[in-house]
Nucleic acid binder design. Structure first.
Lengths: 261, 261
DNA sequence: CGTCTCTGTTCGACGATGCTGAACGCTTGA
DNA sequence: TCAAGCGTTCAGCATCGTCGAACAGAGACG
């Protein structure tokens, strides 16, 4: 691993999480690096447009080029492009907002957001992240991850986002097992009070989980008994369709968990 | 400038423009680097999530983390946050889609997109880029750039996107002079056939251009004589309002061009 | 209004660290 | 079956990045 590149990436990560602008000294403190080292890295990153400096204050922030890269990632994402049509159809069919998400570290990130057809004003959540343990998408992905990676997720520390967030390893392990047997994950106000979700995993041609697809919205509307049954069927069918498009062969067997290796 | 970091940034840039997936050999060829060098850089970038490798083909593409960074850039962008309210008001007032853009290299990038209130289905263009010379936003920014930077833009090679795209340095110089004297730039189907735009610059507390704000839409609707006059007034007023919010003092003097050192 | 402390920045020398050519499996296509 | 291309590994040399100390400027404070 190349030291300076890794440090540069850590700087970008630091600028991207928490305070939007940071000074050289502060960055050096957080990453345990000497001031001139951070300075050199920042100047290089600035020249590439990945970071920009406020000439007035001297502080640094992320540069516009990272947004351009983010857009390029979306444009090139196979999961996204392959799921857009089916996600749109699902949104119209069940009249709910649809998300397509991937796992990045210990959070799921929205790569596609299909608006609920009936609502006029909605905010786009593409690029937003939610801790994996607090949403249906995270559970759906975790349930089909190789054992080792799933354990890694369970071992990391977690914090509660609402009063209903499940954080205990054993509780989560049980929840994941249920997901694996049913093929769908359900979340009830574990990330935001009032909101719920329902998601199923998406597999690729090697039957690996590459993400999850599902619906989000008011918990009371999504999780009412009738709606829930209808949504479960529609979501699993759509996710299965996307998986098939990606070349997956073993499509959510009845016993859930796929064998890995 | 740190060599390895610069090379890593060039790799990201290469992955972000053009082909969404590239192999080690191909990247090495494009950047004139030895294969193992590229490999080492890619492995480091992959570990940070900025790049991800398709395990089946071995090829590399941008990773999900760049999208997360892009989102963080948007969240921290002062221009964006300071212009959102006024952009929304402008969109409702003139019933057109509104863009807020910044200059990155030789293109303008959309950092905020306010939908046209009347249209149901529209695609979000945040993160999209347009060559500076082919749109009103680019002209608006160029006209208020320090002389040296403006000359740099004019010296770079340009290509036509439509039959109406202006590419000659002298033609552009004249167009920019007009923008500087009027405070607004107008574009008529120079980037996409059928589309037009109308934009004004946004200045910061040191009276530097930080971006442009304006409307986009069908050229025939935007550029009809009456609409054009009304839009010009509304756009300049909104851009001036954002500039004031950012602390600018010299607000688009009558003679246009600001003195720069 | 001076002073002091903090910032971001420059400099130079040390030595760790990243670069490279050659060689390795592996898959793909002929 | 073979050959050509891929991504990957290795080890040695020289480069290149790192760090402590010192600098200039801004801002806060008395």
């Amino acid at each position: 691993m190349i030291q300076s590149v890794d440090r540069a990436a850590r700087i970008l990560h630091e600028l991207g999480s928490g305070s939007p602008t940071l000074g050289v000294t502060e960055l050096g403190g957080r990453l345990d690096l000497a001031k001139p080292t951070v300075h050199g890295l920042l100047r290089t990153l600035e020249q590439s447009g990945l970071v920009s400096q406020d000439v007035a204050t001297g502080r640094y922030s992320l540069g516009p080029r990272v947004l351009q890269l983010g857009n390029a990632y979306l444009a090139g994402s196979e999961l996204r492009s392959r799921s857009m049509l089916r996600a749109g159809a699902l949104a119209r069919q069940v009249n709910e907002a649809v998300w397509v998400t991937v796992l990045v570290d210990d959070a799921v990130m929205v790569v596609h957001h299909e608006f609920r057809p009936d609502d006029a004003v909605q905010i786009l959540e593409v690029g937003a992240t939610v801790p994996w343990h607090a949403c249906a998408f995270g559970h759906a992905i975790a349930a089909y991850l190789p054992q080792r990676e799933m354990e890694a997720l369970l071992e990391a520390p977690r914090r509660a986002l609402t009063g209903r967030t499940r954080t205990e390893p054993e509780t989560l392990r049980k929840a994941i097992a249920t997901v694996a047997s049913r093929g769908v994950a359900v979340e009830n106000q574990e990330a935001n009070v009032g909101d719920g979700g329902l998601a199923a995993p998406v597999l690729d041609h090697a039957n690996r989980v590459v993400g999850a697809l599902g619906v989000v919205g008011p918990a009371e509307r999504l999780l009412a008994r009738q709606a829930r049954a209808r949504l479960t069927r529609a979501v699993t069918e759509t996710a299965r369709g996307v998986s098939r498009d990606l070349g997956a062969s073993r499509l959510l067997p009845a016993d859930g968990r796929l064998s890995h290796r």
